[in-house]
Design a protein around this nucleic acid. Structure first.
Length: 492
RNA sequence: CGGGGUGUAGCGUAGCCCGGUAUCGCGCCACAUUUGGGAUGUGGAGGUCGUCAGUUCGAAUCUGGCCACCCCGACCA
């Protein structure tokens, strides 16, 4: 064993780091809090991007790109937004370096090159985008604007973790402008549905759609909708957010439009985003002590073929069959890698592809050649089956669908087992400590109660689920009347 | 940012208390035998001991600054 992964049971947090690093997804860099996303990790991110980008375009959105830098005066325009992000901003103050007269070969910031106005490295782009929209929008005929941007943002987090919270991360941010409140709200929930669809059907991670409490709301939003997922260790992870921004940014940036009746009104806004954090959700939903498990729909390589042979002649025979299998599978739009390297032994390759999370492995040796069979191993269950070689394409095509479904069902089952109802504060705390996971409990609706529960238990209200069943109850903390249970959990 | 810990070859480590240029395993290279679950043998290469400064005849080892990472807290859409 050259690659050792700490077992989940021993230390989940270490396990997570081991997976990220040993599966070649990402690595720490020389920059504090910033990671290098390695080719295997980036390939998965690209698959996510492709699927999401198509969904955005299918719902009428277009891509554009806005600057990395935001002048401070624009950044501070929407007060709540500015306040919310102020503590974690990187700021550009100078534009030139010069040789250090006291230290040969070293550079210093040139004090003569101080910027008139500081530039904020975007932690999110509402400010620069709404400043731009001001010049794009005059009439209801200019609306709606449905723009998305794929970009990097910087948030100077105190403590970082690979993919889950890094100082710089990749994401997409949609920013839309609408003539009416209703249309903007519809957009907000539509994009939440897009996210839920993507995370459940591509990533095979079940989510709960809901709305955030005032405490947890995006700075500058009237309402924040979210999808919440539950990780293997019982902690929640916010997988995506969609914000109804009301007219807050339109007012801050003075973006008005003339309606049909000639009256001027401020534009209604939304913004929505998912980030490379989804990689963390993917890892912590399916992977095991042998390594990463990638759902087939997001696997850069879905099937790997490993030949088992003796000598050059043996390899030649094996390669002919392997290539024909590859062609058959590719005709069904399945991505296949034939690994004929003679520098690694089969056993090594088996372990390595398990570590990297490739959904299906085909092994092919003399024995199979004689029998007209191949061995098919699936990553999700680690089970193996021998099948007739002529049925390979049909079999694998079905298998990939089955693996995708199985991963989702397993995650759904786990979430079901880790979701509990608590009817008293004692019970609530007991569940958090002994079982972890989601806890459904009554809450009196006050930010104060939410804050106290958070301080005492570290559990936060992840969301108020949409279409939440209404039932009379009393708040587990204050004993005041409540109409519905909300979703609590300790979260990443 | 506060408390604790760590940093020695690509990776994991011994040595540090008690100063004299470095241990072991994996990996890497060559050759041979191997190849249906991380092969074996023989030989070999690889190190400014995180970084900068100080003490000293001499620093991986002692002192200080800085950087990074890990754990706990604070913070976090």
């Amino acid at each position: 064993m050259s690659k050792v992964i700490t077992p989940q049971q021993e230390d989940y947090s270490k396990w997570y780091n081991d997976i990220v690093i040993n599966a070649d997804l990402a690595d720490h860099s020389a920059v504090r809090g910033c990671m290098v996303i390695k080719p295997h990790g980036y390939a998965i991110w690209e698959k996510m991007q492709q699927a999401l980008d198509k969904m955005f375009k299918d719902t009428g959105h277009v891509n554009a790109y806005f600057p990395l830098f935001i002048p401070k005066s624009l950044f501070e325009a929407e007060e709540k937004n500015a306040e919310g992000f102020a503590k974690e901003c990187a700021i550009v103050t100078h534009y030139r370096l010069k040789s250090d007269p006291n230290n040969k070969g070293k550079l210093i910031v040139d004090p003569d090159a101080k910027l008139e106005e500081e530039l904020i490295v975007r932690p999110t782009s509402e400010a620069i985008i709404w400043n731009t929209y001001k010049s794009w929008i005059q009439s209801y005929r200019d609306l709606p604007i449905l723009v998305n941007q794929w970009a990097n943002v910087v948030r100077w987090e105190m403590r970082t973790r690979l993919f889950l919270r890094t100082a710089e991360f990749l994401w997409q941010e949609g920013h839309t402008a609408h003539a009416t409140k209703e249309e903007a709200i519809e957009e907000t929930t539509k994009m939440l549905d897009v996210y839920a669809n993507f995370v459940e059907n591509w990533m095979a991670v079940p989510v709960i759609k809901g709305v955030k409490t005032a405490n947890e709301r995006f700075a500058g939003a009237d309402d924040t909708y979210c999808i919440e997922a539950l990780m293997q260790d019982g902690k929640a992870l916010q997988a995506g957010t969609s914000h109804f921004l009301g007219q807050n940014f339109a007012k801050a940036f003075d973006v008005k439009f003339a309606a049909k009746d000639g009256k001027l009104d401020h534009v209604w806004a939304t913004s929505w985003g998912v980030s490379t954090r989804l990689m963390g959700a993917l890892i912590m939903s399916h992977s095991d002590d042998k390594g990463l498990v990638i759902p087939p729909k997001l696997a850069p390589t879905q099937v790997v073929i490993v030949p088992i042979y003796k000598g050059d002649e043996g390899l030649k025979k094996m390669s002919e069959v392997a290539q024909s299998i590859k062609v058959k599978l590719e005709a069904k739009n399945i991505s296949v890698k034939y690994d004929d390297r003679d520098t690694q032994r089969p056993g090594w390759k088996f372990a390595d592809y398990e570590l990297k999370g490739i959904p299906v492995r085909i092994a092919l040796g003399e024995r199979d050649l004689a029998n007209g069979t191949i061995e098919v191993a699936r990553r999700d269950t680690l089970s193996k089956e021998t099948i007739r070689i002529e049925e390979v394409d049909v079999y694998i095509e079905k298998l990939l669908i089955e693996i995708q479904n199985n991963l989702f069902q397993k995650a759904l089952e786990r979430r079901k087992n880790m979701t509990h109802e608590a009817n008293s504060y004692e019970e609530f705390k007991q569940i958090l400590d002994e079982k972890s996971g989601f806890v459904l409990a009554h809450w009196d609706g006050s930010p104060e109660t939410e804050e106290k529960i958070k301080n005492e238990t570290k559990a936060t209200i992840r969301c108020i689920p949409l279409n939440n069943p209404q039932e009379d109850g009393i708040c587990i903390y204050s004993g005041k009347a409540s109409k519905q249970r909300v979703l609590f959990a300790r979260a990443y």
